[in-house]
Amino acid sequence: MSARVIVITSGKGGVGKTTSTANISVALAKRGKKVVAVDGDIGLRNLDMVMGLENRIVYNYIDVIENNCKLPQALVQDKRLKGYLSLLPAAQTRTKDAVTPEQMIELCDKLRPEFDFVILDCPAGIEGGFRNAAAGADEALVITTPEIPAVRDADRIIGMLESMGKSPIRLIINRFRPIMVQNNDMLSQDDVLDILSVDLIGVVPEDDGVIRASNSGEPLTFEQSTPAGEAYANIAARILGENVPMLQFDANSQSFLSGFKKMFGF
C-alpha cells in the first residue's frame, strides 16, 4: 500500500476544514479504505472531538517525532470502523513550531505504507502551521464558503499550493445556501468557480446536522441521511475517481421548483 496524502486547507479560518476532514475520512473508511485522519492543528486541536475520539488519546505525533513512543501507539483506532479508520492526534499543549516541514514529510512517509489515505486537517492561514501540515501532502482540497473573505483567501492558498507543487488541487464549497443563491443574495457555484478557476470536487449545503454531529462526536457520514452527509459521501466517491454527477445549481434559474429539487440533490 502507498497512501494518497491529501491536505484539507483554507485561507480563512472557520470555513469547515475540520468538519470536512472528519466526514471525508469516515466516508472513505466506510468505502473499505484504510484511512488515517491527522490533526495538523497543533495547540488548537479539534479533530479528536469532532470525530468523538478525545477520550482515547494517549500519545500524539509530537511524541512520535520526539521518540517518546512508537507510531502505532499514537494511532487511535476508531472502533466504529475498526481496522479502517484511525486518528493521529496533535499535541494540545504545544505550538506550531514543535515540528518542522521535514519532520511532517517524514511522518507522512511512515504512514504511507500502512494506509490507503492520509487526510491532513490543516490550521487556517498561510503561516508556518499551514506549511507544516501541507509539506507532506501530494494533493489538496481547498475549502471555501461562498463569501467574499473566504473566496479571496482561498485564491491566495490555491496560489501557494500550486507553487508547492500539490496536484490535484480541488475546491469544496461549504455552507452553500440554495435559497440565498436563488434570490441572488449569495455567490453561486459557477460564480465561485469563475473567480477561482480551479476544479470543483463538491458543494456542501448549510446543514444544522453538522452542529448536532459535532455535539455528539459522530460525523454525518456515519449515517449519510442529511444533505451535508450525502454531499460528503459524494466527495469521497469523487476522490475515489467515481463519476458522481455534480448537480449544477443555476443562480439564473427562475424556477423555484428546479431550485428546490436541486436543493436536495447535492
Binding site: E147, I148, V151, R152, V181, N183, N184, D185, M186, L187, S188, D191, D194, I195, A251
Partner: peptide, 12 residues
Amino acid sequence: NSSAKVAKDRLT
C-alpha cells in the same frame, strides 16, 4: 445589481 453580482464583481 443583486448582492451576489456585486460580490462577484468586487472579488474579481
